[in-house]
Design a protein around this nucleic acid. Structure first.
Lengths: 344, 344
DNA sequence: CGTTACGATGTGAACGATCACAGGGCTTGG
DNA sequence: CCAAGCCCTGTGATCGTTCACATCGTAACG
């Protein structure tokens, strides 16, 4: 910076002013400084700036080490929004969502002097840990539960589940079964609640719901049990991979989808339209989620009022994407033209 | 730090020594300093440290904005390895892999004074841009091509394609068709080459190969054309989503898999075992890829010899995971017990 | 015993930016 | 004509570390 100042024939402070777009610099001077910068290929030193201003321009992102479609999409949405707002993003992944792991991640980010933290860490333990973020820092939880004094941005999983369940009931199914996600994820529990509430509201039998995992394995195992029960005609799955597992279990049991059984997923992964049959599923706009969460975080940073940290929570509405995996019960319609007649 | 020094009754320099684990500090003094740190909840200021040492402890990661399974997995592998090595990871995503976008990302990371850059950016344009990374910084390209003077860590896509193709030939297929990925990704081109070379080596007819995208859509479109051709009995797909699209196209055309047509994918996504039928595919260890790429980067940083930057490239060998989507041609075997007999 | 060597600590100056403040020049208004 | 006020610029201190060097004591060595 000194060199730039010398070359432009001004003081270091003027260079700094040009850098920070301070209004009172004469146009001609500014041009000379900019020219000097270009000539010397000058780049402001972020570390020095951080030291002087106590603002790092870095946001921390705690990501759950998972290649699930949702979390991965959010990451990109968040980074994009952060970049647009002029922030850098430092990522720390955690292997588990246990309290200590998340606290460690927070610690790591604090060491880096981040200005705020976004956590894609949807278990309660994570949300609680997030409440430990020092005052003065922003903190937002993405997904998960909306409690524990930390702002949260998430989808309305209950509404999404209701959408799916109601869709199946409207098709004429007597009731809807559910294949759940992991019991310690609020997402999974909210989806169960939305499903159950919709059945209640429609005065239907509520079958027992099984918790599982977010994987196709889990869907396959739980789906196999449902496939054996001929009274099952409609299944709402915790997410799309689970639905894929259920589809496979149904297929192996010789139960046609959607003729014998209708299946609905959750997430709308890019491949969902190419499952056999194409999956009816609940669509969530993850990129939007990322953007909104960053909005909330930035709002916290602007107002410098960490007291109101738990306000500004946002609930996004999912939508239903209807494809070929759902239809009226008991063969009232034939959508599939190539499924087997075999029953086991 | 001054406060810590005062409380411990030593000079700031001694505190610094304790912080940096300098050997010549008396055990007792060290203990006193550590105690003082704890009492004051002291945290070293990274910015000041960076300013003084000119080492930021940050690595830059350029990620392609995509929720493809591969890139997402690599990200986690890299972050994990970086953390283990004591580095922070700053992520910048790019929307396109065009030269300017990648250069911009590099610029952004340089502004942050990263010590090295890992780019998950597998197109040539990206690799070329990566060569522009200033001297003194490490640079590694993950995936993609292995040229252009930048170290690269990637899978041996030719070998993977050969594995898949040979597997199909060994099953008795006369030749193997291919559904390609995007023409501007070296991965896609290498897979084509490996496939073609294997056919040549076995003295088989080489059908024309079509480029497409990495998506199920693309697989579906290209697969539909192949499905119409009864001479097609084996299809090797550029990746798993493409294979999913092909499976669907085959199904809609009434061609049974694997009875009429065998299909092989590439990647081994977690869901591959639950496709209908379960997908035979080429498995890549993405986490390992992440680790190795970081190893290479750190080696560059240690030796401080940017001259040898393009050495140390690593080629990882994929393996074949055989599942139910491949079998001998023309109904010599019946693996599926519930597929239709209908032909359109 | 004197010299050397090293171990343990302290002192002041960087690192490269920003902030607070102090000026010079010019317009403006009384 | 002078004072006030604004625009523009410069000066020095400051942020919290580490680095280079100086100092002091004590052990080792001939």
């Amino acid at each position: 910076m000194r060199d730039v100042a010398r070359l432009a024939g001004v003081s270091h402070q003027t260079v700094s002013r040009v850098l920070n777009e301070h209004p009172s610099v004469r146009e001609e001077t500014r041009a000379r400084v900019l020219e000097a910068m270009r000539a010397l290929n000058y780049r402001r030193n972020l570390a020095a700036r951080t030291l002087a201003t106590r603002r790092s321009g870095i946001l921390g992102l705690i990501g759950f080490e998972s290649t699930l479609y949702g979390p991965a999409s959010m990451l990109y949405g968040i980074e994009d929004a952060a970049r647009a707002a002029g922030y850098f993003v430092s990522v720390v992944t955690v292997r588990s969502l246990e309290r200590t792991a998340v606290l460690e991640a927070i610690d790591r980010l604090c060491a880096q002097a981040v200005e705020g933290i976004v956590a894609i860490a949807p278990k309660e333990s994570a949300a609680h840990a997030l409440a430990q973020v020092p005052d003065g820092l922003g903190a937002v939880g993405v997904g998960g539960a909306g409690e524990s004094g930390v702002a949260s941005v998430r989808f309305d999983n209950r509404a999404g589940a209701a959408l799916a369940t109601q869709h199946l009931l409207d098709l004429g199914h007597a009731t809807v079964h559910h294949v759940g996600g992991p019991s310690d994820w609020p997402e999974a529990r909210d989806r169960i609640e939305g499903w159950r509430a919709t059945l209640y509201a429609n005065d239907r039998v509520v079958p027992p719901a099984a918790f599982g995992a977010w994987t196709a394995d889990s869907g396959y195992d739980l789906g196999a049990a449902l496939a054996r029960d001929p009274s099952v005609t409609a299944v709402f799955c915790a997410n799309d991979p689970v639905a894929l597992g259920v589809l496979r279990a149904m297929h192996e049991a010789g139960r046609r989808v959607p003729d014998d059984v209708s299946v609905v997923g959750f997430d709308d992964v890019p491949e969902a339209g190419y499952f056999l049959p194409p999956l009816t599923t609940v669509r969530q706009d993850f990129a939007e989620l990322g953007r909104r969460s960053l909005e909330v975080l930035l709002a916290q940073l602007r107002e410098d009022a960490p007291a109101g940290r738990d306000d500004g929570s946002v609930l996004l509405e999912p939508t239903l994407t209807v494809r070929g995996s759902t239809g009226p019960p008991s063969g009232q319609s034939r959508r599939s033209n190539s499924s087997s007649r075999l029953r086991q």
